[in-house]
């Protein structure tokens, strides 16, 4: 059970390899083996959403995946978005609307938002709240996160706020 295996994947556009026990969680593998610590661990039960990544293009809880399942996969984490001096539009909207306080849940929210902007109409704030309800935040009360997403949806749809 404890014999390590080789895992090769594409992480944020780069081909990487790492060794891990098959039982290791993908969240721990990304953080402790591949040393990308932007993905956070909040509950290890798939409830809080802090560890949300894109797994073969689809958002997934990295705490509910094993490292072994990442072999051959294309994975994107928060580090795939903009850089501190070159934020992407989602990050800029979060900053503009003060949609983060302690920042611990933020990487998970950013990954979720990156998907729902592509897949959902989000025509009402109610719909935005439903789409975000798989990510927990204890600081913001969600109000400013909803405003940031509303702003992004308006940009996407060419709607004047």
């Amino acid at each position: 059970m404890n014999a390590k295996i080789d895992i090769a994947l594409t992480l944020n556009g780069e081909a990487v390899t790492g060794r891990a026990e098959p039982r290791m969680l993908a969240s721990d593998f990304i953080r402790d083996v591949l040393l990308m610590t932007g993905t956070h661990v909040g509950c290890e039960q798939g409830v809080c959403g802090a560890c949300t990544i894109r797994f073969n293009g689809v958002v997934a809880r990295s705490c509910l995946l094993f490292a072994a399942q990442l072999d051959g996969a294309v994975v994107e984490t928060v580090e795939s978005l903009g850089a501190p001096h070159d934020l992407n539009d989602i990050q800029k909207a979060f900053r503009k609307h003060h949609a983060l306080q302690c920042g611990f849940c933020t990487p998970g929210f950013l990954m979720t938002v990156s998907e729902i902007l592509q897949t959902l109409p989000l025509s009402t704030d109610h719909e935005i709240r439903d789409a975000l309800s798989g990510n927990l935040c204890r600081c913001t009360g969600y109000e400013h996160i909803v405003r940031a997403v509303r702003d992004l949806v308006n940009q996407r749809d060419g709607v004047q706020a």
Binding site: M36, T37, T77, G82, P84, L87, Q91, R95
Partner: peptide, 21 residues
Amino acid sequence: VQRLEDPRLLTGTGRYTADIR
């Protein structure tokens, strides 16, 4: 004023205790 802590917290470059090794 836009927050000065945001650029690092938005990009996964914050440093929480669990990130320290």
